[in-house]
Amino acid sequence: FVGKLALSVVGSSALSAADLAPALEDMKRRLMERNVAEEIAAQVVDSVAHSLEGQKLSSFTGVGQFVRRAFEDSLSGILNKRQVDVLHDIKRARARGKPYVVVFCGVNGVGKSTNLAKIAYWLGQHGCKVQLAACDTFRAGAVEQLKTHAMRLGVPLYERGYEKDPAKVAAEAIRVAQRDGRDVVLVDTAGRMQDNEPLMRALSNLISLNQPELVLFVGEALVGNDAVDQLVKFNRSLADLAPGAAAGGPAKRQVIDGIVLTKFDTIDDKVGAALSMVYASGAPVMFVGCGQTYVDLKKLNVRSVVNSLLK
């Protein structure tokens, strides 16, 4: 594609939209091949195009570098979001004598419960006293799944079996954690489709009742164009469906604070979902799940994601 671009700018001093079109079209295809959602790929390319138009090239041989660097900058800029320092915030909550509450949410089967357990392990490694809360009271086996993790990790679990109101179970779990002097409560929730209104309302209710310090959206790297819709609708539901939201609402406007990107080991170089999710939500990727054991948890390596996207 460098070749195409080079040809079209011979003899001109500033880059015009027409000069850039074929190269940008190529870039868009490349992003989509790496599983960036169509809409997001289009927006990113547009904004890079905008920044390049009218710019002068110092030398003919620099064109390829020039465009690539513009994309590198743009993509890194999107992916490098300010991170919540979880360990630091937990320490501060501890000083106040209150457990730090984290709610995990997302669509079905993406890896909420498994990555919750991995994060419990990671927190334990950093000296935090963790408690789990089994607030998926719907899916068959969900409570037993969490029980198994709690046992293996040697951390307490609060559960009330099935068919209970998850918002209330979470509230009780937090009370117990406070009584027992736990630092962190990790709240598992049932998977739900973003357009299932009753279930989205129930999630909003759980969150507004319990005011967690951190709401993590769990999304899998395998997802395609639906990633955008998921994040937009989870965010919107948390803000709009909470009881009292319409009346202005008493508490702070809840949104997704961070993303857990799972199944990163399943996608080879098709890393585009990371970009779609961050772009659609403005939230940072805080953890990356890359396997099924407790140690398969990483931080996002922005440079390597950008390289895969542009390769």
Partner: peptide, 11 residues
Amino acid sequence: VDAMTGQEAAS
């Protein structure tokens, strides 16, 4: 197969 699967589906 999950209907939400992206570009990895074919492989």
